[in-house]
Design a protein around this nucleic acid. Sequence first.
DNA 1: CGCCTTTGACCAGCGC
DNA 2: GCGCTGGTCAAAGGCG
Length: 274
Amino acid sequence: MENRGDEDMENSIGISSFPDQIGGMFDKSSFLELLGIQDFAHPSIFSLPPLSPPPQPPPPETSEACNLPATPNSSSISESSTEAAAAAATADEEGEDEKEKEKKTLKGKKGQKRPREPRFAFMTKSEVDHLEDGYRWRKYGQKAVKNSPFPRSYYRCTSAMCGVKKRVERSSDDPTVVITTYEGQHTHPSPVVSRGGGGGGGGGFALPPQLIQSHLQQMSYLQSLSSPLDLGQFGLGQERRIHNPPTSAAAAAMMRDHGLLQDLVPSGVMKEEA
DNA sequence: CGCCTTTGACCAGCGC
DNA sequence: GCGCTGGTCAAAGGCG
């Protein structure tokens, strides 16, 4: 029972560590969209001052500061597109009500398979499990996962019209690495953390703009590649080794960019969902 | 008073 | 067909 299916979910998604360097030559809109972010420079998005549209925002003062590239921590992102994207679109159209209904239906009747929503996994080197991302999350479950001594926490966006879910777990390999997986898209622009203002409420996910940009470019890069990189074993514990394709110059470049980060977080890659 | 966290149980999917 | 793991729900308790 060590590694049976491990997690088809994690297997379906890829992860890549991001350099603190920003290229800005990728399409980040897709990533933001998935996060429900419409305006990257939105002041309320990451609790950042409205004066940081440029790729060099001031370091936050909150705990998530440790996520900043300035600190010894890196993050990775993975994304699942294909059917997931379609599912997301569908979910977006249907709305939460439909989703809820669907869930109930599924519960009562197990005939249909619930389409997966787009997922993005971030590997963040941080001491805190919950990082702020500007959204409010409510923890609805925690489960011990195989191959990892750390439990996985399940969060759901508290917004009534948003069914975005988030999983947070620590890497079994590197306890200092927090793996956050977003599922679905935020149907609301900017929740604005009113409660607690800085982490007092539910678990948030810190995603510094800088980091995001990095994520974006890598994600986009991954999307562009569309290569079935094997990162299924990203870490559920076994050996999250990266198999970056030698044919991908971009990948190589990315890896180069990783630099020290690579040492912090085992790189990963994205893998399209089958 | 309202919201969030915690914990246990249940259900569904998948692999063997 | 059985067993295992992941994911979600629901109830209770705690805190602001």
